[in-house]
């Protein structure tokens, strides 16, 4: 269902990006990169809210002709961006949320690895498998 999943560091550089049509990966790079404008905007709007009440899920960042871009930001300002095929109308907001939650859990596992340096590109196989499962899953 997802066609592209990206994890972006606090400093707005990619820690992880994977897309399904690998032949045009750069396109997704641009999609995700430009979506950061919206993420920044949403975060700065949220900044006033209390930290513990903050909603991590940012919702739809912007729709493009073919895709919908969803965002999620952790408390440490690591961003998750998911690009979903816009033809997939069956996808509900709740499902997107649960996917992000799964992603966040898996990311937490990666961070728990004592051999992983925060800020390095993610190379965990477990994380990779989880992302692949999210992308392959056909709704």
């Amino acid at each position: 269902m997802a066609v592209c999943v990206a994890v972006i560091a606090k400093e707005n550089y990619p820690l992880y990006i994977r897309s399904i049509p690998t032949e045009n990966e750069l396109k997704f790079h641009y999609t995700v990169h430009t979506s950061l404008d919206v993420v920044d905007e949403k975060i700065s709007a949220m900044g006033k809210a209390l930290v513990d009440q903050r909603e991590l899920y940012l919702g739809l960042l912007y729709p493009t002709e073919d895709y919908k871009v969803y965002g999620y930001v952790t408390n440490s300002k690591v961003k998750f961006v998911m690009v979903v095929d816009s033809s997939n109308t069956a996808l509900r907001d709740n499902e997107i949320r649960s996917m992000f939650r799964k992603l966040h859990n898996s990311y937490t596992d990666v961070m728990c690895n004592p051999f992983y340096n925060p800020g390095d590109p993610i190379q965990s196989r477990a994380f990779d498998n989880m992302v692949m499962s999210m992308m392959v899953q056909v709704c």
Partner: peptide, 22 residues
């Protein structure tokens, strides 16, 4: 917009930050 400057000195400080692919 791509947080890129053409001065290599900006890159010598610490690790590279930015969206390398783009």
């Amino acid at each position: 917009g791509y947080s890129l400057s053409l001065d290599p000195k900006d890159f010598s400080k610490g690790t590279h930050k930015g969206w390398a692919a783009v």
